[in-house]
Amino acid sequence: MSNQSSVDLARKLLAEAMRVELKDIANEASIETTLNWDSLVHAQLMVAIEDHLGRELTSDEVLSVESLQDVAKLLS
C-alpha cells in the first residue's frame, strides 16, 4: 500500500505532466479514466518519475504504470 506522501508526490508529478492543478487529479485517476492522460503526458510522467528516483525504470516498472496509485507505489 502506498503511503500518503507517495500519493501526494505522484499527484504532483502527474498534475505537472498534465498541466493541471493538484485538485484536478483524483485518487482513482488512471489511463483508462483520465481523458488527458495521453501518450505525451505519459512520457513526461515517466521521465519525472525517473528523475525523482535518480535511476531508469525497469521494463516491468514501465509496464506497471496505469494509474495514480501505480505511480505512488513506484515512488514509495
Partner: peptide, 21 residues
C-alpha cells in the same frame, strides 16, 4: 524498446497483448 514510453502506452491503450520482454 522499453524506453519508448509513449509507444508502450499506445499499444496498451489500444488493447495489444504484451507477449514478452
Amino acid at each position: 524498446n522499453a524506453r519508448n514510453f509513449s509507444a508502450i502506452l499506445n499499444y496498451k491503450a489500444q488493447g495489444w497483448k504484451l507477449e514478452g520482454i
